[in-house]
Nucleic acid binder design. Structure first.
Lengths: 403, 403
DNA sequence: TAGAGTATCTTTAGTAGTAAACAAAGGAGT
DNA sequence: ACTCCTTTGTTTACTACTAAAGATACTCTA
């Protein structure tokens, strides 16, 4: 038992995370993927095998040379918790290190309540349960807002009406686990980068259509959060002059026009529904109502022009459309596609737009990826909490070894 | 004389580049700035001092402890060449490793000529001169267009009417020097990051107002080039529906409205000038002509709304306005400021806008920074040519040592 | 069936880097 | 003057990693 090496070992963590995320691989595969020498992989995998964290699987049929010995993760008990905070409910998931959701839970919640933080902590600890947390690497939290400061502690959110809420320290002291908090769209973008369509792309854009319009930006392989953590607010791109007033105070924001509220105002103005919800409009459009479809087509047209501006600015390889609204995408699409393509610079006109089927717990899964993605983060920018996660990953090794 | 260590030594290079860019510093300063251990700095600076590349300067007055020994660059002969390519002329500069321009030259040039590449190479080699190039780290090239492929070899530019021109290999074989090519606005952004207003900022935006409108984007401390190298094309953000036709084929692009051509069209339509150039309109505005000023005010208003969208999307800490057009910024500003601030999300409303005085050779200086910035590039993404530059930096050490 | 070829893994010898203890050179309080 | 404090720079002992050469285990070809 080595007494030394209490330090974080990013490479051991990276090996485990890679095997978890991408499935079994040979030492040579890992060396190439992680950009390490084969020699080092021999040594590191020897340790991990001895510690019982890795298994040597069957030989792979030779591809012209010595056949590869596949290595697989022995412990599938390593995972993370993902928490999505919405104004009126919480979604919790437990995911394995391969990104697969193993458990889900939803709970009512009032973000504006005086005891909201207390209630959130209780619900979370209840979900995690008593007993042994040694397999959990940490908790990832996604919320509609931004995180202040390097300590990633104080949270701001207009949608939740939160101002400098000490969410991080509250969860941390209650659970003893590392906690990473981020904007929910950024978390979703990270999930796409690790396990979704974005995998292997250095530059892509995730557009979410929900109650508002948001974007997760990945450039140079990294999430763009901006200086104050407010990057991705494409809902507030000005699109029409003297347009309807937006929550943000400006006039003519994209979101004011085609956010859920904007769509309803338009549907009501056109006399398609009286009262009712957006689901009613969607149902009408699905049923073939041309007027209802027209609402989405017009919205798609505006969205297309706005996203084209973003694509011209950022030059992503792919645009992923996601969110509750994506389920009615075929109505949006009629307006989106022509106006989007027409406004792109010629070289980008073929850029791929991928629409992903939407599951509700996807947000929480994305939040969990904040934790699962940390070992991949070569630059180690995730700060102190990220350091703690990497440390935990190697600690798991020690407890397994001693057991 | 060590026979070994033919490998690139990024840290030795980083020490030299840091001293060049930021001026003399103590070993302890360097250790903090480069995030290396004091122990390593003792060793590396010992080598560099022995090789005659560094000088030990006077002691710094103590700040409560042992006084620091300042280290300074012994050789100020290390530098790079910067080349800016415009449709009708070339600008060349020689800059020292501290970013200061030591020599300038401009030459007429026709980018559409059949022998343009040959002529470009001749002018460049003429500027560099015969004889010893050992002090030159490399050549940086900035052009209005994008670079294809990882080899950074083939160049595309609609403005120059170039299609897959093998600029890199041509310059490389003619001079024997490493050549780095990039979009001119990206190069300018890099210069700002290293020696300008952007220094110390991880996220900022450089907006250029020239014949067109462009942007250099820095996010997470790195230049955003996008997947095809076409990031920053904010000139083609759609701003008005059914607007004037743009060169790019779309209608209502920002550039079509407020690029040089757009401004002239507007000035002509308003009857301010008949024929003439933009300089005439600027002169009238400078002289107090309200109609002429109105052209700029209207343009500033449009620019403000568009840039606000970009700032909402990317959340930069600072916006730098630059370029030929920046000299008439006080006329733009009247329209820009109110519309810009009004369209920002509340949290970003105080974002700083810095307008930089404009010198013509600034573009070429930015191009040179592609070379000078390479040693700083911790991730080493600049590819093979960047590797060659870092190698050259240590080679200089060897030749100085043997001399 | 005996190479030739090729890809995987291992060993060896060496470099780059760090932490920690120590030495050096001053300032500030008593 | 003497001690304590602070910061700088150096030495020592160690870890992490790599390159290069070799060992291993297969396929393919003649």
């Amino acid at each position: 038992m080595e007494m030394a090496a209490m330090r974080t070992d990013a490479n051991r963590a990276a090996i485990l995370a890679h095997l978890g995320a991408r499935g079994p691989a040979s030492r040579a595969d890992l060396a190439r993927a992680l950009d390490l020498s084969p020699a080092l992989l021999t040594k590191l995998t020897r340790d991990l095998l001895a510690d019982g964290l890795l298994n040597e699987l069957e030989h792979q049929p030779s591809r012209g040379g010595r056949p590869a010995r596949q290595l697989g993760l022995a412990s599938n008990a390593i995972g993370a918790i993902g928490l999505k905070i919405a104004p009126d409910h919480l979604t919790l998931v437990e995911v394995g290190i391969d990104g697969v959701v193993t458990r889900t839970s939803t709970a009512g919640f009032d973000a504006t309540d005086r005891l909201a933080l207390r209630s959130l902590v209780d619900i979370t600890t209840g979900f995690i349960g008593e007993g042994d947390h040694s397999q959990l690497l940490g908790i990832g939290v996604g919320l509609p807002g931004s995180v202040l400061g390097q300590s990633e502690d104080l949270v701001d959110s207009t949608q939740l009406q939160w101002n400098q809420v000490p969410l991080g320290s509250a969860l941390r002291s209650a659970t003893g686990l590392p906690v990473l908090i981020d904007n929910n769209v950024s978390a979703l973008a990270l999930a796409e980068a690790l396990y979704g369509v974005g995998r292997g792309h250095e530059d892509f854009l995730v557009v979410t259509i929900g109650s508002g319009i948001g974007a997760g930006i990945v450039a140079n392989g990294a999430i763009v959060r901006g200086h104050t953590g407010n990057a991705g607010e494409i809902g507030h791109i000005p699109v029409v002059e003297n347009g309807p007033l937006c929550q943000c105070g400006a006039a003519g924001c994209l979101e004011a026009l085609i956010g859920q509220a904007g769509l309803m105002r338009e549907a009501t103005a056109r006399g398609i529904v009286i009262g009712g919800t957006l689901a009613d409009v969607t149902a009408l459009a699905d049923g073939g109502d041309h007027d209802a479809q027209g609402v989405f087509t017009a919205a798609g047209k505006l969205l297309g022009r706005a996203i084209a501006g973003v694509v011209n600015t950022l030059d992503p390889q792919i645009v992923v459309v996601l969110g509750e609204g994506a389920s009615s995408w075929r109505h949006w699409s009629r307006g989106f596609e022509p106006s989007f393509r027409a406004a792109l610079i010629p070289r980008k006109r073929g850029v791929e737009v991928a629409v992903e089927a939407w599951q509700d717990d996807r947000w929480a899964q994305g939040a969990a990826c904040l934790v699962l993605g940390t070992p991949f983060d070569a630059t180690g920018v995730s700060g102190e909490q990220g350091e703690r996660i990497r440390t935990r990953l190697t600690e798991v090794r020690d407890t397994e070894a001693s057991a």
